[in-house]
């Protein structure tokens, strides 16, 4: 185990801003990408009605 406390974990040996700044933006990008695709599909379904899968 590398960390003896949560505050040690968050400070990342003084590099917290850089480490968490990286991970936070990765997380935001993933959330945004998934939401954008769902939105694109919803726009289609508004136009054409709900679309079911075959054999489902």
């Amino acid at each position: 185990m590398n960390w003896s406390s949560w505050s040690e974990f968050f400070s990342m040996g003084g590099y917290g801003l850089y480490v968490w700044g990286s991970y936070a933006v990765v997380f935001l990008c993933i959330v945004a990408e998934v939401l954008l695709i769902s939105n694109r599909r919803r726009t289609l379904e508004k136009q054409y009605g709900h679309i079911h899968d075959l054999n489902k």
């Binding site: 289609l44 136009q47 054409y48 009605g49 709900h50 679309i51 079911h52 899968d53 075959l54």
Partner: peptide
């Protein structure tokens, strides 16, 4: 969206 198979999918769902 205008092809037969997509129309088929829409019919299966409650359009």
């Amino acid at each position: 969206s205008h092809s037969a198979w997509v129309t088929e999918l829409q019919k299966k769902g409650a359009v």
